[in-house]
Design a protein around this nucleic acid. Structure first.
Lengths: 119, 119
DNA sequence: GTTAAACATCGATGAATGTCAATATTTATA
DNA sequence: TATAAATATTGACATTCATCGATGTTTAAC
């Protein structure tokens, strides 16, 4: 699994409508979106984002997701390699939190131009 | 290929941080993101969005993308079924334009909460 | 040091996906 | 109606990917 390059909060490219997306930028953006385009991974992000302390223990995830521990571990790796989650190990437990700005960096290029307001 | 349900501009779900994403909403959101998570499809969206008249002819796409006509047609179908593009046939040609609000409906649930500003 | 618990990695497998060549379909024109 | 052009569909193939069981690794407690 090749980690995605991730400079926090820096979008890979300009908004789609501004100029035609180049091949490399398209590849980069698609790679990030692929990391998000899975139900289990979206739910993991949501569980982390909605958690009281902004972080969640791996041990809390398999049950609500209905997935085995190895599968959850795999999804966490994908999200971490893509730069959306940060891992901290405390004792035997591993805790994950959102990397600030990482989600916004992906959605920014997808933002539509503001509509012209009729007079 | 099963078309994605699409009521324009209506996001499938609340922001991720607001409440844990349910299984069905996660499936819906993931399906939309999967439609976007491909370099060729992102470039198609960008070519349409950046075009002067807001629409583009299928015939203009294979060359800049370096893909065959059937492959381009396949990607256009994926984007149309997912509700991101609208197709209009004029004569022998087919024209595509963005469905307003469709992209925003996908990115809205991914928006991060605003940071608390320190005093 | 042994044991137990939490997590990561490995290997396998079935399903989904991107791509193309070949073919079908639709529309305009002669 | 016959021909040509643009697009869609079909079928095939190679690749990617989500998932799991089995196993390895790390840490704490005894």
């Amino acid at each position: 699994m090749i980690p995605v390059a991730t400079i926090q909060g820096e979008p890979c490219c300009a908004p789609l409508a501004e100029s035609p997306l180049g091949a490399d930028d398209a590849e980069t953006l698609a790679r990030s979106l692929k990391a998000l385009a899975d139900p289990a991974r979206l739910r993991i992000l949501s569980l982390v984002a909605a958690s009281a302390d902004g972080e969640i223990c791996v041990c809390e995830l398999p049950a609500p997701l209905g997935l085995t521990q190895p599968t959850v571990s795999h999804h966490l790796k994908v999200l971490t390699d893509a730069g959306f989650l940060a891992r901290e190990k405390r004792g035997t437990w591993a805790w994950f939190r959102l990397v600030p700005g990482a989600l916004d960096a992906v959605t920014r290029p997808l933002a539509e131009p503001v509509e012209a307001v009729p007079a």
